[in-house]
Every structure is written in C-alpha cells, then in structure tokens.
C-alpha cells in the first residue's frame, strides 16, 4: 500500500494523515455512490474519524479490531490497501473480499481486522470471542470492539459484557455514540444513565470521552488498552457525530441543519490541523504535502477500482467453503 506517512516517526503527521485519508476516501465513496458505481448500502464515516484514529494510535501489533457496517475507514486503518477497499465497494475482483462482500463486509485477517459485519450489534459477541482467543493463546493482545449507540441496545452486548467480565477477557469496547440509530435518537432508545455505564452491573469500568478530539481519544485508548490488557474489559464511550446521513439511502429528515452545523464546527480534522499548526507540530508546507499525498492515494484508489474487472462468473460458487465441495 502507499506509505501513510510523510514522516513515519512523526505521530502528528501520522494521525493527521490517517484522519484526512479516512475523510477523503469517504468523500470519494459518496461520489462513486452517486455515479452508480457503488451499490446497495453505503455508510460513510465522515465526522467520526477521531474515534478510530485516536484508538488505533495506541494499539499494539498483536491487538485486533472488529466493527459493524460503517467499516471502510477501519479496514484501511487496519492496514488494508485503500485500492482494494475501493475495488470492494465497486464490486470488483480486485476487492479485499473479491467483490463478494461489499460495503458492509470487509476483512483483513492478516492484520487482525475481523470485519465489517452487517447484523447490528452481533459483532460485539464475535469481538468478545476474539478477546477470548487472545487470552487462550496468551498472546498479550486486546480485541477492540467498535459499536454504535444503536448496537449498545442489543441483548447480546450485555451477554458479552457479562462473559467478558466473568472470564477476565482482554476486550476494549468503544461505543461510538453519534446520537442516532438511523432515525431514532439515543434519548428515544436508551433508558437509564449514560451508555458507558452499561457495563457497571458486570463490574466493568468505563469513561466518556470527547470523540471529536483525537488526542483525547488517544489518551483514553492508552488507559483502556492497558486495563483490558491486564485482563479486565473496559468501555470507552466516544461522544461523536456523523456529518452525513446514516447511509446514502437515508434522507436525513430527522436532524436539523442547526444541529448538524453545530457539530461541523467541531470538525475533528480541521481542529487538529489548527492545533498542530498553532503549536508548530506541523508546518503549513507539511500540511499541504499531506493533503497532496492523501488526494493521490484516493484518486489512485478510484482509478484502480474503475479499471478493475468484475469477478468471473465461477467466483459465484467459490469461497463458500475452504475447499469446494
């Protein structure tokens, strides 16, 4: 894959570039969806980038990750080539799932990214099972399970927290609370206290973090990962917001323009850029250079996807089983 770093040892460069790549990549998916090149459902991550990138900045190589259907950025940040992610979105044979998974089903097992799942909340149990594996294999890894405010209402999330705590599993649950489960707000779907307290009855500690601030997310990740690594599951609730509708199919009539604009003013990428410039963590030239590189990565991905062939007909029956029956 193309290098993600202007200066690979510079954490500011890395974080800024990853967030910008997540953003620009998703802007391109929006465009390709409008052109009819991406089919079905497509859930852009735009607005929530600081959550993933902040958490990822503190993960170790043996750690693993799983998430739901808003997974394009997660797949790329896990280490999958953006070209193959865009090729997957456009249903090409060069896609990371050979064009058979689509927007919601992407994996990079060699990078310990376990998907990319479309049944809301079901991956909270899968991720808890991956945490179980880390403990069983004694590899000192933590499974980071991203879920939304909507998923946090699934019964199996509670079953998973119970077993994670009972069995001392190294699992870090990140609740990306963007305020809405498609059209139903958290206020109308979740009773009781804040979402991060949902593990309290199982003895799981937690905290709430400003999910629009990548540095705060990164600091929380440090705490959360180290607690999980010690064999105690932990919950971080990231207060975040998606700038776009739930999916490309959502008319988004339930959120006011004022509300969306209020959060857009807190854009995690431009605020980080301003902060880095102000504190001289990056120069104007470096910012310009990173923007240029990201633009190239995204346009190469789009070009690669558009030029890639669709899967051959015989692919329809392949990969159902490890060996064809």
């Amino acid at each position: 894959m193309p290098t993600l770093f202007v200066d690979k040892d510079n954490k500011y460069h890395k974080i800024y570039k990853q967030m910008l790549l997540a953003r620009k990549f998703e802007e391109a998916t929006v465009q390709l969806y409008r052109e009819g090149l991406i089919r079905g459902f497509c859930h852009p991550y735009i607005g929530q980038e600081a959550v993933l990138i902040g958490i990822n900045s503190k993960m170790q190589s043996q750690d693993s990750m799983i998430t739901g259907y808003r997974c394009h950025a997660h797949t790329i940040i896990a280490g999958c080539d953006p070209k193959s992610v865009m090729a997957e979105l456009t249903g090409r044979s060069t896609g990371c799932s050979k064009g058979k998974g689509g927007s919601m089903h992407m994996f990079s097992i060699k990078n310990r990214f376990y998907g990319g799942h479309g049944i809301v909340g079901a991956w909270t149990s899968l991720g808890t099972g991956i945490g179980f594996s880390h403990k069983y294999k004694e590899d000192n890894g933590v499974c980071v399970v991203f879920l939304g405010d909507g998923s946090s209402n699934q019964g199996q999330f509670f079953e998973s927290m119970n077993m994670a705590s009972l069995w001392n599993l190294p699992v870090l649950y990140i609740i990306e609370n963007n305020g809405y489960a498609i059209g139903t707000s958290v206020e109308r779907s979740a009773a009781g206290g804040p979402l991060h307290k949902r593990g309290e009855c199982f003895g799981i500690d937690s905290e709430e973090v400003d999910g629009m601030d990548v540095e705060k997310m990164s600091e929380a990740a440090d705490r959360g990962l180290s607690i999980a690594r010690s064999g105690k599951p932990y919950i971080i609730e990231a207060a975040t917001y998606r700038f776009r509708p739930h999916s490309m199919s959502d008319p988004d009539k339930h959120r006011s323009k004022e509300e969306i604009d209020k959060y857009k003013a807190l854009d995690p990428i431009s605020s980080y850029e301003q902060k880095c410039l102000k504190n001289k963590f990056m120069t104007e030239d470096e910012v310009k250079q990173i923007k240029k590189e990201v633009k190239e990565i995204v346009s190469e991905s789009v070009k690669f996807a558009k030029e890639s062939p669709f899967p051959e007909n015989h692919e329809m029956f392949e990969d159902l089983y490890t060996k064809s029956l």
């Binding site: 310990r112 376990y114 880390h134 069983y136 294999k137 499974c143």
Partner: peptide, 22 residues
C-alpha cells in the same frame, strides 16, 4: 467451559474464537 444461559452471546463468542484461530 461452563457458560451462563446466554446462547446468543456464547454462540457469537464461539464464532469469534473460531475466526481468530481456535
């Protein structure tokens, strides 16, 4: 391993464990 009465939860935990090498 004795599980709690949580078929959906331990069903998923089993699949997660299988996907990650057990």
């Amino acid at each position: 391993i004795d599980t709690p009465i949580s078929e959906m939860g331990f069903g998923g935990i089993g699949v997660g464990a299988a996907l990650s090498g057990l």
